[in-house]
């Protein structure tokens, strides 16, 4: 298996030296993200997120299956990640690296375990039929901070997704095509976002948001905080690395909240823009069979 290319000694030393003088190689301040861009595909549930030179594509799909025997009233919701050799030659297909496992675990914890989607609404016939919603995350280009970009892509894709409308009549389940009935959005409860801090210096005294790949390679630790715009923290993952002071971590969480709010506003804006683009003659309201809650 090819190993990840290591930065040279000069690069390692210089990145740290620059950080000590409060400088980043791309001229950003420590708590600034790179340019974030989100585009939706023609289909529902495709989100393409670019964060600087990192690019992640998430695609949502749904099919009718049999629910798990121990959870007859719940639908199935899975997130799968794939780091292909397209992102970096160090990744291989069917041989997950540590990065990939950590990424998919973190996404599971953030989006699935935090109850962002109401899985009970995916149930069609108790114990017999349910929707299985699946999000595939493809990393197209890897330049650091995969977690934040991937999480944003997953949330955007799920919120953009529409599943086919269904009806139950006399024990017969009918799934309508988009031509027959307008597809319906998933029942979405809250939008969590991942904010990753990277720590540098001997005691992890310098904290950076949105580290690039060259910065990630010299970090001494990192901490991913997942939270929504209301400040409800879903998880905090600090996997090994240098210990960090509790007070510093609290400060990180505060900044993370403002970032999560920014993400949330941006996503809402983009979703509204996309809805407007699709709503050609203002017919969407008529086509929808959904009840107002």
């Amino acid at each position: 298996m090819p190993r990840e290319a290591e930065p040279s000694l000069n690069e390692r030393q210089f990145v740290l030296k620059a950080l000590e003088e409060n400088l980043r190689l791309d001229g950003r301040t420590f708590d600034k993200y790179r340019a974030l861009a989100l585009t939706f595909g023609d289909e529902y549930g495709v989100a393409d997120v670019t964060l600087g030179r990192t690019r992640v594509l998430a695609k949502t799909s749904a099919e009718v299956t049999v629910p798990y025997a121990d959870r007859p009233l719940d639908g199935i919701f899975t997130i799968t990640t794939e780091l292909s050799p397209m992102a970096s030659p160090a990744f291989e297909i069917n041989r997950p690296t540590e990065t990939e496992i950590l990424l998919s675990r973190l996404l599971e914890k953030t989006v699935r375990r935090s109850g962002a989607m109401d899985t009970e609404s995916l149930c069609l016939v108790a114990g017999q039929k349910c929707w299985s919603v699946r999000v595939d995350v493809h990393v197209l280009s890897h330049d650091g901070n995969l977690t934040d970009a991937a999480c944003f892509a997953v949330v955007a894709a799920l919120r953009h997704f529409r599943k086919p409308d269904t009806s139950m009549e006399g024990g017969v389940l009918t799934v309508y095509t988009p031509a027959e009935r307008e597809p319906v959005p998933l029942s979405w409860l809250h939008s969590p976002f991942c904010i990753t801090w990277c720590f540098f210096g001997d005691e992890g005294q310098m904290a950076l948001l949105d580290a690039t790949w060259s910065e990630e390679q010299v970090r001494v630790g990192s901490c991913t905080i997942s939270l929504n715009r209301h400040g409800e923290i879903c998880q905090i993952a600090k996997l090994g690395g240098t210990p960090v002071e509790a007070v510093a971590l609290l400060q990180c969480t505060n900044v993370a909240l403002t970032k999560a709010k920014e993400f949330s506003t941006y996503l809402d804006k983009k979703l509204a823009e996309d809805a407007k683009r699709r709503d050609k003659d203002g017919l969407m309201a008529e086509l929808s069979a959904e009840n107002d809650r």
């Binding site: 210089f14 030296k17 620059a18 003088e21 400088l23 980043r24 190689l25 791309d26 001229g27």
Partner: peptide, 10 residues
Amino acid sequence: SVKTVVVVGR
């Protein structure tokens, strides 16, 4: 100066 290197690189 580190700053110069960063500026040249950018």
